[in-house]
Amino acid sequence: MNLYQPYLMRVDEIIDETVDTRTLKLAFKDPAVAESFTFKAGQFGEYSVFGAGECTFCVASSPTRKGYIECSFKKVGRVTSAMRDVDVGATMGFRGPYGNSFPLDKMEGKSVVFIAGGIGLAPVRCVIWNVLDLRDRFKDVTIVYGARTVGDLVYKRELAQWAARKDVKLWQTVDPGGETPDWKGEIGFVPTIVGKAAPSPKDAYAIVCGPPVMIKFTLPVLAKLGFSDETIYTTLENRMKCGVGKCGRCNIGPVYVCKDGPVFTAAEIKKLPQEF
């Protein structure tokens, strides 16, 4: 037995999010592990399809939901192709949880602003449900989510649930040209909509996740609204193999994304060498 030995998981549900992204709901095969397994919002793991290999994703489900984990992925390589080929009931592997997490204890009693683009909603969704499941511990919850087109929006069922809730302010947007005739949300890039939503920085934390270009243009908007770099969190994803600081590929200068991250504040990121 060694630390690279995964837990065996059963594929319980397959949800197609968009044409190329999919969510798998995985349950621990060993009841003892299902019982004892815990993780924190923001942590990641190594998912594997035996014969194809391992792949790194954050856990997209909330730690408040026990006994299972979810991951959302886009088919790009060998492992993700194999993950698209699994059926309900199939066996997969999972190692984890690894890495640090979003500081939910610090956020308690504060407002939270979630900003996500595309499949970047996956790690954010984990925190969203974590917050919503413990809703009375937090103040205002604002979600700004955008994708290139309406078809690229992930977790559509949950977006509808969030939209219906009175205790959540949800802004959905698509890039200009990506709307459908019956689109009721915003049209425009995420940073613009963040400016429009103008969440108050008072006693608030922001969690930003999405493509690098979105993050790049969102940070100044948040700064203008009055968010300090210490209150803005994001998560980085570099190529990883081991997840535990040994295989040597995820570091950005002196920082190991797998051990020191994947969650960083904007202040921390600005200090890093620009190599990610």
Binding site: F50, A52, G53, E54, K241, C242, R249
Partner: peptide, 21 residues
């Protein structure tokens, strides 16, 4: 530094290896 790869040893069986990288 190392890589982790899966290699099949036939149908439905195989090994996971750690290789230099």
């Amino acid at each position: 530094c190392f890589d982790i790869v899966d290699e099949c040893e036939g149908l439905g069986c195989g090994v996971r290896r750690r290789n230099w990288d």
